[in-house]
Design a protein around this nucleic acid. Structure first.
Lengths: 344, 344
DNA sequence: CTGTTAGCGCATTCAA
DNA sequence: TTGAATGCGCTAACAG
């Protein structure tokens, strides 16, 4: 942990007996340097342990090679995987990541965070926050005139935003259809909070499939959870209390499915014989639940990676004075069948 | 997503009819500005939507107000919580976070990543990577002469590093003692990979307690897992195969405990009556396992927060020309008792 | 192939 | 209280 003043290009130049410009050329691997000079300078660089100051370079070039990422809900599997995907792709493309986490949906945070990111000259912002009604109104004001491209990680095409999103509706359809195909007839749903777009869309997918059955009022087959296992436990109890005819449940995430599994156990309901359960996310633990959970897998890392790609496209276009537009990039979910939904 | 050239201090100055220094004073809330001037300038700032370029400011001040964070193992609950803690505390203290993730322990990555962080002028680096033997040798070379303070998030005091760490030994002792106090006599262990310090220390804690019993060769009571639920399943089977007298198991993390729970179920072993199981981490799902898992809770967010505090102390001392030293900051774990270890 | 001049956006001397 | 000059570390545009 010893200290030495940071070496600058100037000192390298003096030590090597060349101009700073030549050093600059060497560290940027420019072709117009004679082999000997390049060698000599490189030697001094290694010797002095010089490393260019990227801050200064950013200033003069007007490019920071930095992306801002706003995240939320780390601690859940999906958001974390997204972040991993973003980081990996960014690293490979030579971008650094300035990370901000939203603690809750306090609008004033949003303002501060984005301002901070922008004043640090990020070239773009990846908004890796689940969709939420409360948030949306605020966002639209904030980002309408954002000076950098923004990629959103959920489906809500308001302006001409770039959007990469998981096809939640499709996932919910897969889950519901699977249950029906297993011989279950009356599929209830435990949704996430109603102001979350992910929850809304998963419910829509479920409705689309259930409408084709002769079941009457779908609202009677629905309870609202808060994504937690606890709410899944309560949710199943409420659901069966108000609609005893239910013989299968689609839970909008794996944690709630886990809670439902527990509730069923506590009530002496046999799964999957008497009740089928399907979750959403495919968290790593899902295969080890009792019984193992059928669920919808989403490739969240890929989602993050695609977001970075979109950002790059946008940036590249911008540098050529063009504007990049793109339809929503959809990531397709996959059904993972395990024991919790297989009727003997 | 409209574009306008970024406003600089110069344009504000011109528009306000003052010099750039005056504007600089206003944006830095200096006292030596007359109220009217301040008001006038502020108005122009709001009007033009000016926001200072932090990059430029960093350059001239020689301080970036940025911390580098190197993470690993997001996707596991602990590391993610740590990151949350780091982010929150950093935000409150006015630091931005440059995030890098280690994908594996490839030493060349480590080099590139730290160099990148340093060339971006981070004021310090928080090394939020689990301890690993393979990594350690490489690190020592790398960081011996690091020009910025580094805070490590695990116990291995090599130089005069700043270290914030969970007391893994203590946690393991708590777990093992708890099992013994419940009347179990022969407590086996499913450890993590042996080159992980966390695994090593948890094993040490277990050994310390078990040495006090009259049990003979402790190595016969131990199997090695890889942190995954799958390895926990296999682990329990191996353990019981080689030492049938085992009546309780301490798994070094909750995922492996989950796998063990599953294996016990598959083998028809009743938990907790015939076999007690305790995990480590207290992941949110643990309370919903079947049966609910007794485990060791670690306050990982607090760990992250403390790491940032240590960094700040170090930075502050440095700015006053001093050197900050500190003993390891230990975060104490807590025993959470649930059904998997309660003998009727 | 190499050096000189200029300036990125801002804050820190100073002097007025 | 304000402004002019100077420079942070680096690179772009020129000239030689």
């Amino acid at each position: 942990m010893a200290r030495q003043q940071k070496v600058t290009i100037k000192e390298v130049a003096k030590a090597a007996g060349v101009s700073t410009q030549t050093v600059s050329r060497v560290i940027n691997s420019r072709p117009d340097v004679s082999p000997e000079t390049q060698k000599k300078v490189q030697h001094v660089i290694d010797d002095l342990g010089y490393s260019p100051n990227v801050i200064a370079r950013s200033l003069v070039r007007g490019r920071s090679n930095t992306l801002g990422v706003v995240g939320y809900g780390l601690g859940y599997f999906g958001p974390t995987s997204i972040l991993k995907g973003i980081e990996k792709r960014s690293y490979n493309l030579g971008f650094s990541l300035l990370l901000s986490l939203l603690d809750d949906f306090d609008p004033s945070y949003i303002h501060t965070i984005t301002e901070n990111l922008l004043s640090r000259q990020v070239e773009g912002i990846i908004w890796a926050v689940p969709g939420n009604d409360r948030l949306a109104g605020n966002l639209s004001v904030r980002f309408k005139e954002a000076p950098v491209p923004i990629v959103f990680l959920n489906k809500s095409r308001r302006f001409n935003d770039l959007v990469v999103a998981l096809d939640n509706q499709d996932g919910a359809r897969l889950a519901t259809q699977h249950l029906l195909s297993q011989g279950y007839r009356c599929v209830g749903i435990i949704t996430g909070p109603s102001d979350w777009w992910e929850a809304q869309q998963r419910e829509v997918g479920w409705r689309q499939v259930m409408l084709d059955t002769e079941i009457g009022d779908l609202n009677k087959l629905k309870v609202v959870g808060d994504w937690s296992a606890h709410s899944g436990n309560i949710g199943l109890r409420d659901l069966l209390a108000k609609s005893p005819q239910i013989d299968a449940v689609f839970a909008s995430n794996d944690q709630m499915a886990l809670g439902a599994l527990q509730a069923a156990r506590q009530m002496g309901i046999k799964i999957p014989q008497e009740l089928g359960i399907v979750g959403f996310d495919d968290i790593p633990e899902a295969a080890y639940f009792y019984p193992a959970l059928t669920t919808i897998r989403q490739d969240a890392e890929e989602l993050g990676a695609q977001a970075v790609d979109q950002m790059c496209n946008s940036l590249q276009a911008r540098h050529q004075g063009e504007e990049y537009r793109s339809d929503v990039v959809w990531i397709k979910p996959e059904l993972i069948v395990r024991n919790s939904s297989i009727r003997a």
